[in-house]
């Protein structure tokens, strides 16, 4: 393995996110392409094709912006030619010129990561370092919804329903439904609904 620590860390992180490394070089439209690392997604991300360019220490002309541009343009063209639906994402690992990013942006998604604090085996050296690394490639990672199944019973998504659930039993149901219906139309409507219900119960026949 001739990959740099940063590239190793990236590949490791992406593989954790269910990407699979492709063996390089590979051919597209009969053209051979060699990249420091290439990965493709699975499942919903199966059309994601990720290329990692090591602009600091890489081979294959990775350190030469023009060469990088050429290769990516070529691959893009090759994919177009084969009517591929691959979505190309290029990760520029290491410092890079913004002109390179600008040049690549029209044809693929470009992510740029200069540095990361990594252990020798490629794992982040701290939680903060991991967060910083994730931030750079967030787009490629699944959403972390921090789902807590117990926290949020879905039936309570409606504040009014939640309010009704929070209320003790035995309240005046006509008042409740009137207030709930009027709440959409604002406080004056609520006050009117209150007044209406008060008027109803004040009717001497109401108790009969």
């Amino acid at each position: 393995m001739t990959q740099s620590l940063l590239v190793r860390g990236l590949v490791r992180r992406l593989e954790e996110a269910h990407y699979t490394s492709l063996s390089t070089p590979f051919k597209a439209a009969s053209v051979e392409f060699d990249f420091t690392a290439a990965l493709t997604g699975t499942g919903g991300r199966s059309l994601d094709l990720i290329l990692i360019v090591d602009t600091a220490t890489g081979d294959h002309g990775d350190r030469d912006a023009a060469s990088v541009r050429q290769r990516i343009h070529a691959l893009s063209r090759a994919l177009d030619v084969t009517q591929s639906r691959y979505l190309l994402t290029v990760i520029l690992a290491g410092a890079s010129l913004s002109s390179l990013v600008d040049a690549l942006s029209p044809i693929c998604r470009v992510l740029s990561i200069e540095d990361a604090a990594l252990e020798p085996d490629g794992t982040p050296s701290s939680a903060a370092a991991r967060e910083a690394l994730d931030d750079q490639i967030r787009l490629l990672l699944p959403l972390d919804l921090q789902q807590d199944a117990a926290a949020e019973p879905s039936v309570l998504a409606d504040p009014i329903a939640e309010l009704l659930a929070a209320l003790p039993d035995g309240l005046d149901q006509d008042l409740l439904s009137g207030l709930a219906a009027a709440s959409v139309r604002g406080e004056a409507a609520v006050t009117r609904a209150l007044g209406k219900r008060v008027g109803e119960v004040l009717d001497l026949k109401a108790g009969a």
Binding site: E187, A189, V190, T191
Partner: peptide, 10 residues
Amino acid sequence: DRLDAIETGL
């Protein structure tokens, strides 16, 4: 807003 309306309206 509906809760506010209820609170203010009440």
